[in-house]
Amino acid sequence: MKLPPLNALPAFEAVARLNSFTKAADELNVSQSAVSHQIRALESYLGEDLFTRKGRNLSLTEQGQNYWEAISSSLNQIERASEQVQGIASSEVRLALFSSFAVRWLIPNLPSLQREHPEVDLQLDMKNESPVLSDHTADCFITIHGESKGYTMDLLYTEKLFPICSRNYWNHICDTLYQAGIIDSLTPTHIPAESLFQFPLLSTISIFCKPKQDWLLWAYAGRLRVPDSVKFQQFSHMLLTLEAARHHQGIALTNDYMYDPERDSDLVRLPCHDFITEDKFYFAFKTSRRNEPSIMKVRQWIKKTARTSGLA
């Protein structure tokens, strides 16, 4: 077996992760010159430059980035395997997920995880996009990417969107439709979907990366055409759209993890059709880590909570 200078690998991993020779030396409790020597030895062995240095700026080369991705995962596996042999079980679990999913669903449910598994130290890393599946990012993930080599995926939720507004605005809608003779009660159990087009529609651009697309697809699912006269307000994120709806600015489209009837008593789900998007949310973890107790505890808790909360 032909291996590189093994003492150099932790030094390289630390410099790449911290983007600093000084910080890496402090973390490893060695001198900066010792770290530099290890990096030079590794570069000499590989025959490739791993870093580019321009003045005080340090960055990985393409080869360095690829090498870091490969060896850091291996070093983590060696560390975890050694801990298992020693009988040391890590209680720390890093979970990367969408910020909206974290704020609106996970965090409100966390007290039950803390009650059931107080030994688990769950650390959240909130992302604006579906997180990259990598040991560098986290130990486990909530993602919309359903397949990835080497990862186990548990389906948590198939997204559907439905209209929602504030309770005050709902009263305004009912009064308007009643006065127009469209509904025959101020507390209707159903309203014609096309009647929503006379009110301001709050649209979330990030759902489909295109203005108005959420409402256009909702209308298409109901075999409706959106009139040119409809007034739209655009928001970059569903959290913002929901807050605008909460403050009586119009009707928004949201989903099950963003809306909880018990917590959001000031909001009303309108009695119209919903539509299923193409997004599916999965709990993901590296299959090779399936025997790590803390990850498995988080996995089972999330799956159970998704079921009991009505998400799954």
Rank of each mutant, 00 (worst) to 15 (best):
L60S: 12
T277G: 13
R94Q: 14
F281H: 15
Y151P: 03
L3G: 03
I142R: 03
D264R: 02
H117M: 01
S229A: 13
S33W: 13
G47Y: 00
A193E: 09
E129Y: 15
Q32I: 02
D125M: 15
P211M: 11
Q114R: 12
W218K: 00
N57I: 02
S288M: 12
E116A: 04
V93Q: 00
N66C: 03
L217S: 07
I88H: 09
P4E: 11
I142S: 06
V15D: 04
D154W: 03
Q300I: 03
V132G: 11
A16P: 07
S112P: 09
L270V: 02
K286N: 15
L133M: 06
S74R: 14
C174Y: 00
A70D: 15
I71K: 11
T305C: 08
S236P: 04
L239K: 06
W170R: 01
R104A: 06
K303R: 06
H117W: 13
M126N: 10
Q84Y: 08
P108K: 10
D154N: 07
V120N: 07
F283E: 06
D266K: 02
L95T: 00
S72Y: 04
Q213V: 00
R53T: 08
L6Y: 06
A34D: 02
F208Q: 08
W170Q: 11
R53L: 08
L202V: 02
F281E: 01
H37D: 09
N109K: 11
L156A: 05
L161V: 06
I207C: 06
Q77Y: 14
A70F: 12
F235E: 01
V230K: 00
P4D: 02
Q300L: 15
W301C: 08
K54P: 02
E262A: 14
V93A: 10
Q249A: 15
K54Y: 04
K297R: 15
K286G: 01
R246Q: 14
V85L: 14
L95D: 07
L216N: 10
T254G: 01
A16N: 07
C209E: 13
A81T: 11
N19R: 05
G150L: 04
L217G: 04
T22A: 14
V85K: 09
R53Y: 04
T158H: 11
A102P: 00
D175V: 04
M153E: 15
H145T: 13
N128Q: 14
I164F: 00
R263D: 03
H190C: 05
E83D: 10
R299F: 08
T277Q: 00
S90E: 12
L60A: 07
N66M: 09
V30D: 03
Q84H: 14
L270F: 08
T254A: 12
G181I: 12
E278P: 04
L155M: 14
F21M: 12
D228Y: 01
N168Q: 15
P163R: 10
E243Q: 10
M126Q: 06
K286P: 05
R225A: 08
R115C: 09
P261T: 09
K2C: 04
S206I: 11
E13L: 09
M1K: 15
V230D: 00
R167F: 08
S294K: 07
L253Y: 04
P111I: 05
M153S: 15
E69I: 06
L177R: 02
L177A: 02
L240Y: 08
S148H: 07
Y67Q: 02
E43W: 01
W218Y: 09
G47R: 00
S236A: 10
P108Y: 10
S99L: 01
